[in-house]
Design a protein around this nucleic acid. Structure first.
Lengths: 162, 162
DNA sequence: TATTGTTATACTCTATAACTATA
DNA sequence: TATAGTTATAGAGTATAACAATA
């Protein structure tokens, strides 16, 4: 429904009367989806030139913090199915950002590490992430960030204690 | 990393030492994704027997509240691309839950309505949604629900005013 | 020319089953 | 028997381009 109004200056202005979402707009799942899409869209925009997706960034960052983890550990910690982790890590390895190393004592598993190039890229990504994060923290105010994170963690994990 | 500990009763207990997510765990995008996955997984479980997805439910609910909307209005209000809305609504129509009606005055567009069956199904779905919602509100406490919704809306839409 | 609905299509994300080589 | 990694594959969700009918 397009409505035409007249401003005080006598100009015509067209606008859409908002469609009532009703209870849908107050569902946690719906609000979470809309917020997540907004944040991920901004992430995609900033990381487009580096061709890095959220899951890829999270893997690189976790390996920086925990060098030598096995695939199953990284994928489980990040909630990525081990079967989907394989091509994800293949891409990082093909690009020379991370690598699999044989581990002594268990010839089934690989230990994962960042390469120098991966570490170098992370410094660039971290700067972009900081700006990305600041954009959304700015929308709610710094004081509200921890409140929001705490609530989200309690939604995701009932055993979470702040 | 699997660690083996000994309880007071001298039993062996295996547990995984948690992998440090570091800054990743404090990213809004990451926390939003995890929370959304948890909520949508619960939704999928409850609606499995009705074979209804979140987007389908939101369309039915919006039509209940706004009978006669055009496709473009519904899809825009819910953030569904009009091109993806077509097969989504085809499914609802094939199942006899909603219908397209010709609209006088514009032979290009259709007005969308729930059928009786659609309205009837919604009463069932609404009950399940209420239980679903209560589960997650219970995790944060009723007093925090509006806080969370408000923050999420400000994340999703910078122009949002509470 | 612009808009409404549509088709075809492609890419990402996520999920399951089944395999291999080790343990 | 169980585990780590892998392959193949299928289903959602989301995206773009191009078209027909109508405004």
């Amino acid at each position: 429904m397009i409505k035409i109004s007249r401003t005080a200056d006598d100009d015509l202005v067209a606008f859409e009367s908002p469609v009532a979402l009703g209870p849908v707009g107050n569902l946690l799942g719906y609000a979470l989806r809309r917020a997540q899409l907004a944040v991920f869209a901004d992430f995609a925009e900033r990381m487009a030139e580096d061709d890095i997706r959220p899951a890829q960034y999270s893997v690189l960052k976790v390996l920086q913090l925990n060098p030598g983890l096995r695939q199953a550990q990284v994928s489980e910690a990040l909630g990525i199915k081990r079967t989907n982790f394989v091509p994800l890590f293949d891409t990082l390895e093909r690009r020379g950002l991370a690598e699999r190393r044989k581990v002594e004592g268990d010839r089934r598993s690989f230990a994962l590490y960042l390469t120098r190039a991966g570490t170098r890229l992370l410094t660039v990504l971290d700067e972009k992430i900081a700006a990305h994060e600041a954009k959304f923290v700015g929308r709610i105010g710094l004081a509200n960030k921890d409140t929001l994170l705490g609530l989200l963690q309690r939604i995701a994990d009932p055993s979470f204690e702040e």
